[in-house]
Nucleic acid binder design. Structure first.
Lengths: 233, 233
DNA sequence: TCACGCGAGATCATACATTGTTTGGCGGAA
DNA sequence: TTCCGCCAAACAATGTATGATCTCGCGTGA
């Protein structure tokens, strides 16, 4: 019944330009984020067009859009390549999150209604119930948790930025498992956050979120590092 | 001889994806930012193609790119419209700057070389020499000043974000004049900033930058409000 | 090593098909 | 008469197809 499929905060473009449900854009984007298209892989327009059963025109437009979002690098007359979602990329993204999310949180604390808090508690209950058993589900719920806080923020730019970054991090972390230490920390920080919101302590909430995002980013980076090391051996 | 034409920090998208396409992209973008294309104005592909002497294909790609950057809104089957660069837009942007720039500055303070400081002082001297006589020149110099601080930051994402926002604010503020109060404040804050960098006081520098960006944003917003009020009468 | 030529593929132009949106007029109802 | 809903034509977005031209990377031969 409560389907917490992660969805972007309202007002954020669902980038569904084409009539087709799954546009070429979305397909390519998924392929990149999910890692099906490898880092620096060449994106040949004609190939993509054939693979997705379209002509070249929609593909080219999709690539431009992806460039605008930073998933693809296009060099003049040399075509498009998959932007590597490497450690630097992830670090850049989460560091920006550390700067932005506390501000969003601060606003939320001051604007939160009882319904908001109930919603947070409900989601948190589901998170605890799941207890990382289903990592995918955890990811969805965790995203929903933070979406509740940010979705109504007046700064749509900031919210949209958060969402885009979130999508990338979510996709990357999907490849890894949570360490025990991280699981405990996530739970504790979420509970702390709810307490701070209830107590209307914006500063503390902001500080907790900063720690939360920082920790999450570091965790993913560690995983990537470990994965890379394992791969190299 | 010292031409401080504002240029993006190294490694930031030179958006020169295609020979011809780049120009179409740039031209449309300029038209939007400079206000030659009005808010919500409809962007008809065929018209744009004709106006810029190209076919529709590059135009369509340019529009997708602009959509990715938030300058254009595309609704399915209804085409593209100019995204209004209104007060909300500007506020969103400068608020993000207030969050990000202090962090960039903090890093700069710790990494600054003597050459960097000399560069800052040189630019500041030019700013003082110009003393707002030529607003355009001031804008260029001011941008150069901050670029010195951010251009080598390891977080390319953050630097790029700053640059894109900067471009928008620069274009918007080009329509207005600096108030006397703002002129004095800008000078003082720049000088303060240099002092903090010299003294290696990262926190103070960050705080000054936060104030600087906040003030700059507010100033532009005030101007926009005044302009709008004058226009309405 | 270095110049040259070739081929893959990007970029652009053009023409056309299809589909969804807009608009202006027409006829009937109030 | 005036208002309203409906419809068709104009308009334009979107996608397809094809060909021309240009750039870049690579292999070959001097």
């Amino acid at each position: 019944m409560n389907d917490f499929k992660a969805r972007p905060p309202a007002g954020i473009d669902p980038i569904s330009a084409s009539s087709e449900g799954a546009s070429v854009y979305e397909l390519i984007r998924e392929d990149i984020i999910e890692g099906r298209l490898k880092a620096n892989e060449r994106l040949v327009v004609a190939d993509l067009a054939e693979r997705h059963g379209t002509s070249t025109n929609p593909v080219r437009e999709a690539l431009q859009l992806l460039r605008g979002e930073g998933f693809v690098i296009i060099s003049p007359n040399r075509g498009a390549r998959v932007r590597p979602i490497d450690q630097d990329f992830v670090r850049d993204i989460y560091e920006i999150g550390v700067l932005i999310e506390p501000a969003l949180t601060r606003w939320f604390v001051n604007m939160a209604t009882n319904e908001d808090i109930e919603e947070l508690e409900r989601i948190q209950a589901l998170i605890e119930e799941n207890n990382f058993a289903d990592p995918l589900k955890h990811s969805e719920l965790d995203t929903a948790f933070h979406t509740v806080m940010y979705q109504r923020h007046y700064n749509r730019h900031a919210a949209e930025l958060w969402w885009k970054h979130r999508e990338v991090l979510r996709a990357v972390s999907r490849r890894f498992n949570f360490t025990l230490a991280r699981r405990i920390t996530v739970m504790r920080e979420h509970r702390q956050l709810i307490e701070h919101v209830k107590a209307q302590e914006a500063d503390k909430a902001a500080e907790t979120v900063a720690r939360h995002v920082e920790g999450s980013g570091r965790h993913i980076l560690e995983q990537m590092r470990a994965h890379k090391a394992a791969e190299a051996s």
